[in-house]
């Protein structure tokens, strides 16, 4: 079975006002369906840049990116937006929920994105199913300011799951949460891999990383497999 994502020799060079700086240096990575990967590394090691390249927010300067076997290294923005909608779910450290919308409306945001149109009834059903997956269907009508941090992050995860993505990309999803809440958030993410979703988790937390199938270290843009102790 071919991997969902296959990065080969991907490099990203930051061309700022000073000398060019290599952020990613010949990264090779495979993400498979139903498998989870943790990427750990110090601040500034290029974790978020790698996630940006994986999530089609940014393009690699060198190397190839294959998604579902298709080479998408040089993809126009319109196609990239379509793929972000159809293939990816994103969870960020900050929840990025819109305060004026209810939990259900926040989740629905991923469905009302101009990529096809779902009738309201179907939309509602999908939103409720996603909220149910993360165990907060009862909070559908609540607005973010009335929810705890853990609940808000679960809404964000529901938003990432609502389109049944093939790959979940999570950038420090537990960074703003206490240990217990963080653990339950990781539980929700891992539950998605049980449904065949690939998961890439960027984290500083060794315990969370240890729960993934693989752990990769990113040091100065170079990605290496961590050998279990």
């Amino acid at each position: 079975m071919s991997p969902l994502i296959e990065l080969t020799g991907v490099s990203k060079i930051l061309k700022g006002q000073q000398e060019p700086r290599t952020i990613l240096d010949g990264v090779d990575l495979e993400v498979n369906a139903g498998r989870s990967i943790a990427i750990v590394g110090r601040s500034g090691s290029g974790k978020s840049t790698l996630l940006s390249v994986l999530g089609l927010f940014d393009r690699a300067d060198e190397g190839t990116y294959r998604l579902d076997g298709q080479d998408i290294t040089r993809l126009p923005e319109r196609r990239a937006a379509k793929l972000r909608s159809s293939h990816f779910g994103f969870v960020f450290q900050r929840f990025f929920l819109l305060k004026h919308l209810t939990a259900a409306q926040n989740v629905s945001m991923a469905l009302v994105n101009g990529q096809g149109w779902l009738p309201r009834r179907n939309r509602r059903a999908q939103v409720m199913a996603a909220l149910d997956q993360v165990g907060i269907a009862h909070l559908a009508r609540n607005k973010p300011p009335r929810m705890s941090g853990g609940e808000q992050q679960r809404v964000a995860i529901a938003r990432a799951l609502v389109r049944n993505p093939k790959i979940l990309l999570a950038d420090e999803p537990t960074g703003a949460l206490d240990t217990e809440t963080g653990t339950s958030v990781i539980d929700s993410l891992l539950a998605a891999t049980g449904r065949g979703c690939g998961l890439v988790l960027v984290t500083h937390d060794r315990d969370h990383a240890a729960r993934m199938d693989r752990t990769l270290d990113l040091v100065d843009g170079v990605l290496t497999e961590r050998v279990p102790a």
Binding site: A81, K82, R84, S85, F90, F96, L98, A110, G114
Partner: peptide
């Protein structure tokens, strides 16, 4: 800014943001 960036992240095309 964050809202629009997030919308782009979930697949909203630029033209829809302008819309």
């Amino acid at each position: 800014v964050e809202e629009f960036a997030l919308r782009r992240a979930v697949g909203t095309p630029r033209s829809l943001l302008a819309g």
